[in-house]
Simulated scan of single mutants.
Amino acid sequence: MKRKHNWTVAGLAVLSSVIWFPLFYMAGQSFMGNWELIQNTGAVLSGTKGRVHFALLPRFPTLSPYVELLLDSPGFFVMFWNSCKQVFPILAGQLLLGMPAAWALGRYRFRGRSFIMLLYMILMIMPFQVTMVSGYLVLKRFQLLDTHLALILPGIFNTFPVFIMTKAFAGIPDSLMEAARIDGAGEFRIFFSIGIPMALPGIISAMVLGFLEYWNVIEQPMTFLKTKSLWPLSLYLPNITSDKINVSFAASIVMMLPAVLLFLWGQKYLEQGIAASGLKE
């Protein structure tokens, strides 16, 4: 039995290495000088002649890519703050509008509820390419194109966080709600004192997943934003020239750090959110 367990652990380790290896490789390349990086992978990355030499670790480690990115690249910081201006208002709006909607859909039974849930699911699985033209026309009609609101407003009304929070609110035992009503608590008191605390793992899960989605969004800003000074950080990497390949690896690491740190912080909430869907009285 122990031997079988060891084989299982070994197999899982091999599978996980497939995911982690590209990240380790990217981190190693970010500490390489540009000349060493071109010498190793220039045949692929910059179109130079020769063979590709695989090197996980740099022979001559240097911090010059990070120095150039953080000290000599003002465009990087402009796009970084653009991402903050776009992502955090989206998450705040999803909380402000999404939680009451999810509470109503998760806790109340009313005429048309099933249709609304079906509509939410259709909108949730519908790719951006399907709604791109209609969204563009609506934003143009309201003169919101080429502004931060062109990304913020559609993100606020995204149906995915409402769907997740609805499941979290629906998992709250009815006995708690009935006991609160017997004690004289009103619906608003129940929502703030029982609903939000007990559904907090699902709410945080929705926010973590929303941050990961909008921090890395590419298609929406490319479609709705024409002025480069409004572009988010996700569009910084495609604009790095081939003679600064090491800077692109460094930018990838820096851009990935907020998402990784947030995921590590919210991992327990994600697990609790999944477990909460099976909560029973």
Rank of each mutant, 00 (worst) to 15 (best):
M1N: 11
K2G: 13
K4C: 00
V9S: 02
W20P: 04
F24M: 14
Y25C: 11
M26P: 05
M26A: 15
G28Q: 08
Q29H: 07
Q29D: 00
W35G: 09
W35Q: 14
E36C: 13
Q39F: 11
T41D: 11
A43H: 07
L45D: 00
G50N: 02
R51Y: 10
A55W: 09
L56T: 04
R59L: 13
P61Q: 09
L63K: 07
L63C: 10
Y66H: 08
L71F: 14
P74G: 02
V78Q: 14
C84R: 03
Q86S: 05
V87S: 01
F88L: 15
G93D: 13
Q94V: 04
G106D: 07
Y108W: 14
Y108E: 09
F110S: 10
R111N: 05
L119K: 04
M121C: 09
M121F: 14
M121R: 06
I122W: 12
L123S: 15
V130H: 04
T131Q: 10
S134I: 12
Y136N: 00
L137K: 13
V138H: 05
F142Y: 15
L144H: 01
T147Q: 01
H148M: 08
L151H: 05
I156K: 08
I156E: 10
F157A: 11
F157Q: 06
T159F: 05
P161W: 00
F163K: 01
F163V: 00
M165C: 09
K167Y: 00
A168L: 02
A168E: 03
A170S: 13
G171Q: 06
P173M: 05
L176M: 15
E178S: 09
D183T: 02
G184Y: 06
G186N: 09
G186D: 06
E187P: 14
E187V: 12
I190D: 11
S193N: 11
I194P: 12
L200W: 04
P201G: 02
G202E: 00
I203T: 02
I204H: 02
L209T: 02
W215F: 04
M222I: 03
M222R: 00
K228F: 10
W231Y: 14
P232D: 08
Y236P: 03
L237G: 00
I245A: 14
N246I: 06
A251P: 03
I253Y: 08
M256P: 01
A259C: 13
V260R: 07
L261S: 11
G266L: 08
Q272G: 09
G273D: 07
G273K: 06
G273E: 02
A275I: 11
L279G: 09
L279H: 08
